[in-house]
Amino acid sequence: MRIVLLVLILAATPVFADTPRDFLNRYEKEAGAAGNPTRGGQFFVKRHGGEWSCSSCHTENPTVAGRHAKTDKPIKPLAPVANAERFTDTAKVDKWFRRNCNDVLSRECSASEKADLLAFLIGQK
């Protein structure tokens, strides 16, 4: 039933300018499952075998500004509620997932990891 609902929601989603929810929908569709915000939050702060976690630069609170762990350059908040520019441009989103997943996990992120992360970020108040 949930899958049917999901498919219906996806089918009804217009393909205009990208919104954070469009990205969530896209990753959920690829993963075949709904994003889990709790899992996304754990993924965000955890290290994945490397030196950095997502939160090394973005801080553990995605609604506040971060700093690049190496260069110290300020980074605007990642959560859409705090920064309306986030997750509105496919090329940018793809580029940063490619780079940052490689830095943090030494591989690409899976669709379900991205869905979890989006669910976590969209859920920020």
Binding site: R98, R99, N100, N102, D103
Partner: peptide, 12 residues
Amino acid sequence: LTKHFGTDASLD
């Protein structure tokens, strides 16, 4: 650029 001072800075 994929190994840009220890980080992935790859571009299209």
